[in-house]
Amino acid sequence: MLDDRARMEAAKKEKVEQILAEFQLQEEDLKKVMRRMQKEMDRGLRLETHEEASVKMLPTYVRSTPEGSEVGDFLSLDLGGTNFRVMLVKVGEGEEGQWSVKTKHQMYSIPEDAMTGTAEMLFDYISECISDFLDKHQMKHKKLPLGFTFSFPVRHEDIDKGILLNWTKGFKASGAEGNNVVGLLRDAIKRRGDFEMDVVAMVNDTVATMISCYYEDHQCEVGMIVGTGCNACYMEEMQNVELVEGDEGRMCVNTEWGAFGDSGELDEFLLEYDRLVDESSANPGQQLYEKLIGGKYMGELVRLVLLRLVDENLLFHGEASEQLRTRGAFETRFVSQVESDTGDRKQIYNILSTLGLRPSTTDCDIVRRACESVSTRAAHMCSAGLAGVINRMRESRSEDVMRITVGVDGSVYKLHPSFKERFHASVRRLTPSCEITFIESEEGSGRGAALVSAVACKKACMLGQ
C-alpha cells in the first residue's frame, strides 16, 4: 500500500517536472537572447534605426563620474514606483581627507489618484512632500541643488532636461508624456511658492545606482535594477552614441532593455503563462523582457503555473481556492519566502493557508518547484541581457580580458534567497573573457542622484555659470 502511494507521488512529481521543464533555458538559448539583445542595442544607438529599435539606448548626458572633490548639501528625489523618497545628502571631506556622503531620508507613498490623475496632481503632491521634508529638517530658507531620480523612459536633451516617452509600472498621470519632466517639477514648486529649489540633474535609477557604486569602486561602469521592473545602464564610447554629437570619451546610456521583445525577438521563448500575464497587464505587448524578470510579474506567473497544475490534477487534489483564482493573489514576496523555507515546509504551508488552501507535504514541495522554475528562468533571462552589455563593452574597448564592476539594486536581487547566485553564475558562463565584480548599492537611487548633481554643480562652477 505504502509502495503504491510512494509510486503515485513519484509519478505525480515526474509529471510536474515535465510541465515545469518549459521554463528551462539551455545555454544556447541564452546565447541567442544575448546576441539578439546586442543587435537591438546597436539599432538603438544608431541614428537611422533608433526610432524602430525596441531597446532605445537613451543617452543620459552623464559623462563624468564623481571624483571626490564636490562638497555641499544636496536634496535628492526618487520616483520610480508607488513609494517616493526625499533625501538630504551631505557631501563633504571625511576623516583623513576621505570623501564622505551622509544621508537623511523619508519615504512617502503615492496615492492612487496622483498616479493615475493628471501630471499637475502628481507633481503638486511631490512638491508637497518636499515642503514637508524641508519643514522637518528646518531647511526651507536654503535654496538647495536638487537631483531627481526618475525611473521611467526619458529622452534627455541635457542633464536637466528630459522628455517622458511613456509611463510604465502602473503610472498613468495624463499630460506628462511628451513633456519635460524637470519643467513639470519646477512648475509645481513655483505653484507652491513656499520654498526654492535648483533642479540641476535628472537621472534614471540605473544611472543613480551606477554612480553610487562608483563611489565604492571606481571600476563600476554598469548599473542595473532588478526590482519591480528590470533595466540597466553602462558607459558607452561616445563615438557609438549617434544621437549625441561628439566622439570623445564616454557617456552613460540608459538601455531601457525592459522593452526588448516588443518587436518579436522573444516570441519563441514566451510561454502561455507569459501571454496571460501580458494580456492582463496595463501595457499589453510592451516591456516583454521586463515581464519575464521583474517583481511586478513574478508572483503572478507562479500563480498561473499553480492553476495549470491544479487543472492537471497534480496539486491540491485538483481544487483551487477562490483566493488562488484571484489575479495578483500570489505576491512576489511569497516566491522569495517559499524558496527561503528551511525544509520543514512550515513557511510554505503558512503562505498557502493564507490563500485558503490546506496543502499536503507533496503540495508544498511542488509549489516550491514552481517558484524555483519561474525565478530561475528570470535570473537566466536577466543574465543574457547583462552578458550582452558586458561583452559589447569588452569588444568596443578591444580588451582581451576586461575587469568590470556592476552596481545592482532592486528588491528581487536583494531579497530573493537564490536569485543573485543563479544570476551571477549564468552571467559568468556567458562572459568567459571578463572578470566581473557585483556590488549592491546602498540607498543607491538617492545618493547617486545627489552625486550626479554634485558633478553638475562642479561643472557649472568651472564653466562660470
Rank of each mutant, 00 (worst) to 15 (best):
E268H: 06
K13Y: 10
V452N: 02
N180Q: 11
M202F: 06
I390H: 01
S69I: 09
S426T: 11
I404N: 10
E372H: 07
L184E: 00
F269H: 04
L315Y: 02
S441Q: 06
E242L: 01
T116D: 14
M37V: 03
E290Y: 14
R5G: 08
V408S: 06
R369I: 07
A208G: 05
A21L: 11
G448C: 05
R392F: 10
S174A: 03
T431F: 07
G68F: 06
M402P: 10
S64F: 12
K140V: 06
A173G: 05
G385E: 12
A21G: 12
T431D: 07
H137C: 06
R191G: 04
P66C: 11
E272K: 12
R327G: 11
S453G: 15
G117A: 14
P153Y: 11
D262M: 12
V302G: 01
T228C: 06
M41Q: 12
K56H: 07
K143E: 01
A450G: 14
L88F: 05
A456I: 10
R447P: 13
L122D: 12
R397G: 08
L463H: 14
V181I: 10
R358N: 07
G258W: 07
E279G: 14
E300K: 02
E48I: 15
Q337R: 11
E245P: 00
E96F: 13
F152Q: 08
V412R: 11
D160L: 15
H317L: 13
R308F: 12
V89G: 01
D205I: 01
R63E: 00
L20E: 11
L165G: 12
G294V: 07
V55M: 12
M462N: 08
S453P: 11
H416G: 11
S76M: 02
G178V: 13
F260D: 00
E236R: 00
P111T: 04
S373T: 05
T326A: 10
V207G: 03
S441H: 05
S411M: 11
L292C: 12
G448S: 10
E242A: 01
M8L: 15
F316A: 05
M202T: 02
P432Y: 08
S340N: 07
G246V: 03
L463K: 14
C220W: 00
L307T: 08
V154S: 13
A282V: 13
I130T: 02
R377W: 00
S441E: 03
